[in-house]
Design a protein around this nucleic acid. Structure first.
Length: 805
RNA sequence: GCCGAGGUGGCGAAAUGGCAACCGCAAUCGACUCAAAAUCGAUCGUCGCAAGACUUGAGGGUUCGAGUCCCUCCCUCGGCACCA
């Protein structure tokens, strides 16, 4: 028999599959559908390392099994290419990013193709293709029409290095997620999407999703729903009212001062009046200092609390009409709640710290059994709270709120989505400015194509480089005397725009008159299974859910969630345990591995490494194990006997049981993405089959079918070598014969005082009495039991006998 | 601080409450070879010559029986965090 030549085999079958269109997705079919999707890659200039395909291999395996099981499978691939990496490369090389993106896409596709994936490339999408972003722009127009997109001049996060505004989601610990530069607050004009309108639905519907708990929890944290009361504190001698938000209105009688954020309107107002404050100068200084601090400085919880008293200003506690001082302090955040809090130092750590420092009174109003409460989360019984004393916290919350005319409200940490970037490489907004008026570009004029420019360098002025392209920016609207010049919006959309809906486009990628044809949308419905990195938990996966719900509301889609089931991929680390990076010189290139060991070996190895969602280090030694496995399977071909009924061509009873068990296990494991244990089961089966001199052909064929999703090339090669004319990938997935799964005999473990001392074989289905008698008759057991009379004997049929002395 | 996922051999790990360590890597020994690689066979949690005892982060508990269930605690990773 010829030796296993992975290069020849893999090249041959990749050509063959392409030629025969083995993986083309049918447009309409009476088969049940299955839509399985990978998070599409960002094609950077560096190419793929071995970590990238891990998720793609996993979905490829699932999709191949589903196809063999008779599903009409949609398993597409595309590219997400707008955004900073491509743009920075363009700046450096002074080339149009369109060109470098095309080149990188080519490179990525080649790298993916040699791995033997079953993508239907006729459905490829690219977010930077005007035919694609026409519909990204269309969605924006709809958001604008429904009042969910608006212009704002609020201060936003600004990255001085990337020279662009950022969404809240793009800030990590006060730093720009891309370049780690501390972000600044900068008031500027920008486009904002009202994602908070969907906060409640985004939160609620998480419960309906088959997603990893950790991702759902991240989203819950990010949305940050909390319920509480808004309570008005009147200001003594003025018409102003300070509205505070609190989750613990039951502590209202313990308020000893009120704090407002430095940016609070009340402070701004007071500072306008020369005589309102006795210490006006001090307050001005404090507010100004807070304004120039970075987020990191501002929000560091370890930092000493600072604040300034508004001398001469008193708030009136509506519960007992007590006058309390008012402070301005930067530990209160302007953007959360009402920007003002009632301070209860006895029951809040932060207020306590502040009260200590500024020597403010502390009044205990909650007791919990025998101790005084010091944390917000604890509840107890009210004391020194007028008519509410003796009431439970739970009850008092509502009652006190009601009694002071407060309102029970829901607040979210989630902020509106800052949607514009002052950069070149993104989707242009389809809007025109006519003086102060916003004029949407008519749908029939979409797409608004991104023009070529001379310089891609961000300006840093709050305008994108597009602002300099006069003949693009200035648009003549109307005819004759009515004609007027309007200016195009020159901000561009953030990198997350295209990926917020791309999965819908695969359903109907060429459609020029609709984002997706309603029939195609109805058929493919939603993504059944989505696989990608957990790092997208609070950006891509929230944004896509938001847009999907919006598209549902306007009737474009018929489902309320885009991704029914989600699975996170664990990273592949470098052999040194660090993240794979050029910087550490620990990057492993899949091209090299495919060259040396073959794609099938790489695929098997990456799946066999360990649990799929776990981060694991690459091991050059480890890959030899899966290569050896394939070579053993290859050699086993010589032992295959045709099914002519001779003894050599029948399977031993044990092997038959194992084969059926393996069919069931591999099927289950692939469904649950336990690819590591599936590979292990295949190895066990091959070891068993290889034990005998001859292997019956049907058994070997079943084994090859189970192997086919993992190692598609070698499986098809061996399959055709057996004389099959069709591709193994179009063969029917084996089904376990339930009657053959069970062994003929049960192996019964016998325990004495909880320790296993012996095992014996029993006829299947033996009753309890028989099992007990057999167990007690065993010599090894007599040794342990001796003359003692067992106190108790527990028999689990088909499993074990437990003797208690 | 709150929430989530984890902690099992030298390593990656496996185990519907029922024989802990399957499968693989590495290692050791042997066969083949002039030799090496490859391949094949054997050994491979700890202590012990053995019989056997011990072993799933620590300590308790439930159970005939716990890696698995319950309680307390420690550690690692991830999310949120001066969010009132």
């Amino acid at each position: 028999m010829k030796s296993y030549d992975h290069k020849k085999i893999e090249k041959h079958w990749q050509k063959e599959w392409a030629k025969k269109g083995t993986y083309e997705t049918a447009l309409a079919s009476d088969k049940p559908k299955f839509y399985i999707l990978d998070m599409f890659p960002y094609p950077s200039g560096e190419g793929l390392h071995v970590g990238h395909p891990k998720g793609y291999i996993a979905t490829d395996i699932v999709s191949r099994m589903k196809r063999m099981q008779g599903f009409n499978v949609l398993h597409p691939m595309g590219f997400d290419a707008f955004g900073l990496p491509a743009e920075n490369y363009a700046i450096k090389t002074k080339t149009n990013p369109m060109d470098s993106v095309a080149k990188n896409v080519e490179r990525y596709k080649n790298q993916l193709e040699i791995l033997g994936f079953d993508y239907d490339w006729s459905r490829e999408v690219n977010t930077t293709d005007p035919k694609f972003y026409k519909w990204t722009q269309w969605i924006f127009l709809k958001l604008l029409e429904k009042g969910l997109a608006y212009e704002s001049h609020e201060p936003i996060n600004w990255c001085p290095s990337c020279k662009t505004g950022l969404a809240n989601e793009d800030v990590e610990d006060g730093r720009c997620e891309r370049c780690s530069t501390p972000v600044e607050k900068k008031p500027m004009r920008q486009w904002v999407l009202r994602i908070t309108k969907y906060a409640d639905r985004l939160l609620q519907d998480l419960d309906t999703l088959d997603w990893p708990e950790s991702i759902k929890e991240s989203q819950r944290n990010w949305i940050g729903r909390s319920e509480g009361a808004e309570i008005d504190f009147a200001v003594k001698g003025r018409k102003d009212v300070l509205k505070v938000f609190t989750t613990r209105p039951d502590t209202l009688f313990g308020v000893t001062y009120v704090v407002v954020a430095p940016e609070h309107d009340f402070v701004t107002e007071l500072l306008k009046e020369a005589a309102a404050l006795k210490n006006r100068g001090e307050v001005i200084k404090y507010v100004a200092a807070a304004r120039v601090m970075t987020q990191i400085e501002r929000t560091d919880a370890k930092k000493d609390k600072t604040g300034v008293r508004l001398e001469g200003v008193f708030a009136i506690n509506p519960a007992n009409n007590e006058e309390v001082p008012v402070y301005v302090a930067d530990y209160v955040l302007a953007e959360y709640g009402t920007g003002a809090v009632m301070a209860v130092p006895a029951h809040d750590d932060r207020d306590f710290e502040f009260a200590k420092k500024y020597d403010l009174p502390i009044e205990i109003v909650i007791r919990c059994e025998d101790h005084i409460l010091t944390a917000w989360t604890e509840e107890g019984v009210l004391v020194d709270s007028g008519p509410f004393s003796g009431m439970s916290s739970e009850e008092a919350k509502r009652k006190i709120t009601e009694s002071v005319g407060g309102k029970w409200v829901v607040k979210y940490k989630l902020k509106e989505w800052v949607f514009s970037r002052q950069r070149y490489w993104g989707e242009p907004f389809p809007v025109l400015h006519d003086g102060d008026k916003i004029v949407p570009v008519p749908e029939e004029d979409l797409p608004v194509e991104l023009p070529k420019v001379k310089s891609y360098e961000p300006t840093g002025t709050g305008e994108s480089p597009l602002a300099d392209v006069e003949d693009w920016v200035n648009v003549k609207v109307g005819k004759g005397k009515d004609a007027r010049i309007m200016r195009r919006e020159t901000n561009t959309m953030p990198q997350w725009a295209g990926s917020s809906w791309y999965y819908l486009r695969y359903m109907d990628p060429q459609n020029d008159t609709a984002l997706v044809d309603p029939k195609a949308e109805k058929y493919w419905n939603q993504v059944d299974f989505y696989v990608g990195g957990a790092e997208h938990a609070t950006r891509h996966l929230i944004y896509a859910r938001f847009w999907h719900k919006f598209l549902y509301d306007i009737g474009v889609v018929t489902t309320t969630e885009p991704f029914k089931r989600l699975q996170s991929v664990g990273l592949i680390m470098g052999e040194d345990g660090r993240k794979m990076s050029k910087r550490f010189g620990n990057v492993v290139n899949p091209d090299d591995i495919v060259e040396t060991y073959g794609a099938d070996t790489l695929r098997l190895y990456e799946m066999f490494m360990g649990p799929f969602d776990q981060a694991i280090s690459w091991s050059t030694g480890g890959i030899m194990g899966t290569r050896r496995f394939i070579e053993r399977v290859w050699k086993m071909r010589e032992k295959v006997a045709d099914g002519d009924g001779s003894p050599a061509a029948t399977l031993s009873k044990e092997a038959e049981v194992l084969l059926n068990k393996t069919i069931a296990k591999v099927t289950d494991d692939i469904g649950a993405v336990r690819h590591n244990t599936a590979v292990s089961a295949l190895m066990i089966l091959s070891n068993e089959l290889d034990k005998s001199e001859f292997i019956p052909r049907p058994a070997y064929e079943s084994f090859l079918k189970l192997l086919a999703p993992f190692a598609p090339h070698v499986a098809d090669e061996l399959w055709s070598d057996l004389g099959n004319n069709n591709s193994i990938h179009q063969a029917t997935w084996p089904v376990a014969d339930a009657t053959k799964i069970a062994d003929e005999e049960d192996i019964i473990a016998v325990q004495v005082n909880g320790k296993t001392r012996a095992t014996f074989k029993a006829v299947k289905g033996s009753d309890k009495t028989t099992l007990e008698a057999s167990a007690l008759a065993l010599d090894e057991i007599k040794k342990w039991v001796g003359d003692a009379q067992p106190k108790k004997v527990i028999v689990v049929q088909g499993r074990m006998v437990s003797i208690v002395l």
